[in-house]
Amino acid sequence: MELVALVTAFVLTFMLYIFIPPLVDGIERKIKADIQSRYGPPTVLQTWYDILKLMSKEVVTSANPVFLLVPLSLSLTLALFLAIVTSYIAITHIDPGLGALLLVIILSVHTLNILTYFFSSNPFSILGTFRAISIDVLNEIGLALFLILMFVIATTSLSSNTLLTLATLIPLLVAIYVSHRRLPYDLHEAEPELASGSLIEFSGPLLGIHLYGHLLERYVLTSIPVAIVLHLGGPLNNPLLAPLVLHLTTTALYLVFGVVSAVLGRSKVNLAVKTLMFLYSLAIIIWVGVYVFEHTI
């Protein structure tokens, strides 16, 4: 009985991971349109329609499409694997090994994405890639650090300390926001022009795979802190609740991110790097401060 419930919950969580990301992107577009006093796409399923339309088009590339297809497919597979691991965490338990596994997968996905950008020798693409690399490298430091800290807190007695938990959770959420590549940090791809920057040579099914993989990765990343926090008080009583709680909370968090990006402008490259360095240094100092403060009392 236990096992059946666990397996059902696991499969349900994973299936939702596959279907929800484009849906929640459609909802975000509608909300952003609301903030801008207009209608936006006709339905919330618009992103699904877009991806399916892209998959039905012909492949037009400047070099052999296999060079792009391989890293894209690998990246997508790894993102799915990431979803599996997170589902497992959400339903059963956490341990540091799983944390390390998550980190390795996330970094691999990011590296594979950068690799896909090198497919094109177009100067626009190189411009965008360089920017993407600068922001990514800086951000991954923060992401890795606070993810590890979050796992440490979740698997030790430190979890009872709410202030410390918050001091870890908030920078983690910021790092995840930046890795979403949204405004104000969507520098790799210039929005006023369609599909340019590092994505300039992607078209048709390749763009479709990239778009889906990107949305999936964003969503899974957002669900990781939710999955961890779900376990702070121990594993769930009824495993079938896990998919519901996990996905609802992740969707809500994702939409909050969407609203934030709708009210900000795009940052300049040199400013973005400086801001991120400042933010993470500040976060580290605050964390150390809170830790020392809590342990000397």
Partner: peptide, 8 residues
Amino acid sequence: AQKGFGAL
């Protein structure tokens, strides 16, 4: 405007 000079 977004990329700046660096990528050149």
